[in-house]
Design a protein around this nucleic acid. Sequence first.
DNA 1: TGAGTTGTTCTTTTT
DNA 2: GAACAACTCA
Length: 681
Amino acid sequence: MARRFVLKPEAEAPTTRLTVDYAGQLNPQQYAVVTAGGGPILVVAGAGTGKTRTLVYRVAYLVETGTPPEEIVLLTFTRRAAREMLARAAALLDGRCERVQGGTFHAFCLGLLRRYAGRLGYPSNFTVLDASDAADVIDLLRTAHGLHRSGRRFPRKQTIQAIFSAAASHPDADLETILEARYPQFLEHLEALQALREDYACYKRQHGLMDYDDLLACTIELFRQHPDVHRQVAARCRHVLVDEYQDTNRLQAQIVQALAAVHGNVMAVGDDAQSIYRFRGADFRNIFEFPRLFPGTRILKLEQNYRSTQPILDLANRIIRRAHHRYDKVLFSERKQGERPAIVPAPDERTESRFVCQMILALREQGVPLHQMAVLFRSSHNAFDLEMELNRRGIPYVKYGGLKLSEAAHVKDLLAYLRLLENPKDAAAWNRVLQLIEGIGPRTAQRLIEWITSADATPFTLEERPFSPRYAEALIRLFTLLRQLWETELPLEAQLTELLHYYRPLCERRYYEDYPKRLQDLEHLVSLSARFQSRAAFLEALVLDPLELTALEVEPLVEDEPPLVLSTIHSAKGLEFHTVFIIHALEGILPSAYALNDPEALDEELRLLYVAVTRAREYLFISYPMVRYQAGSGSYLTSPSRFLEDLPEEILEPWVLVEEPTASSAYELPDSGASALPPGD
DNA sequence: TGAGTTGTTCTTTTT
DNA sequence: GAACAACTCA
């Protein structure tokens, strides 16, 4: 008779001691989220409730309790957010989080597709098109079809691109539904647009091109067609964490579902009241779909606001109450004391800018660092006047949002050469590059592209020369250079230097009015490239993360003092500041004129204001000009945003700007402005 | 076919 | 103030 030995069940959690005092550093709700076990979890978190902090601790906790870092996926809204979170988690654990997979949905998908593109019939060196590249390709096809003069007005290339993108992010709706809902004026072109869309898809496949939407759609396609790849990828996703879930679209939700297919551990964090990316296909209802998508979901809440004072939250709560949709969250703070938010009407834009500048300087005198203050606005040109005033006074600032350096024509030109070296079949890049040569217009460019991209020969060789002598010499020069760079593996910076040397005269001819400034940008770009490992990495960073470049651009200017932040409200998502100014709070701007006829869009504008307001910790100033000037039509009276109407003075304190009545400074507000300040802290 | 000029339209937010 | 269509001239 054999002897029996009774085995005890293994303890669930590994016995390693935890190095972080989770219970001590988090509140009970946060602690519950951080230490929650596996399975699907939805965390509904109001503004300022320590969402980021909670995710950071969650990553640390998972690593400490035995999850291999490389099997954690952290999907965030920007790459900057991912980097920051991972850095903080790494700081908690002495760098043990380094191998966590993280980034935006687009970046994550791109990584996968580079590896598995072959399975979908794409070359692995495919090019990623940004929105304006995509519009250029569409334009190419539109011209080829002769659609641009098909009678009634045909939408412009950017609009077509927007329509296709909307269709791609709503995989359940067809083109007709999209047009009906958002572009009824183009319904008459439905068939032409459908044909064009098919052509566009086909063209991209032939030339190794993917736009932003393809990155998501192809990933889903890959998983559907190749279950083995899907299993392999999902197996490495032991825990999937998604930040800002309210701003995901249907495709992204499907990707999350696919990634969690093996282990089933998904945690999504979001706030339906802060959804501000509807125009990009996001739907805040996605967050309520989560429990349906993942049966057995546990819903946890973070409710206590640590960021703002109660008066600021009172205003935020009042604002969100105006929405047609009911948001059942009321933010409360332990920080009962605080100044009331101010509403500041200014006679005109100039005065509004002067007010903001002088208040900023006064607060800086009081000891608030510049970079703890932010000026927020609906769209980037709302800040032009203020920027002039800041420049005049020498106040350093960084501006987020709006036009990116990588979207400027001259930058795209230079990068097009680089793109060709990476993918010699990139028709969009060829189109740019060829048309820069004198004597080559759209027609010739197209013929040449066809010939170049169909030949299977070594790239950048000119065997016969069936071209007009008008441009033959220039074409040979271009090909020789590209061939040379393609064959010799120079460091990235040297490649760009060579290309810039070639491009410089073209740039001077084309932009004769302002080429010195543009060349300066390009030299900056060349020096920036030195930090990148490879051509591909550089190009990818520029397509997926154009923000970073704008931010970097200003860095060297500021040596001693971190600068003031100017930002679109969209780009300020997830950030917080000691003091926030919201400028141009006007009908037609916030809410935007485009939203006025659509209750859903109007709700989104309201959420946008809600996001802006909840960025502030201590002081909040909302201002607007009472008169504006418009080129041509002169000045006109404005009306303040409807969202701020009829709010009692206990919630929003009205201010009046008064000019100092001395003769010498009759046109200036006092620079110290001390008497106008709220009491210091 | 390309280059250059003029008049018209539209103007948001971002990966 | 830019992008685009429509025009003229070489």
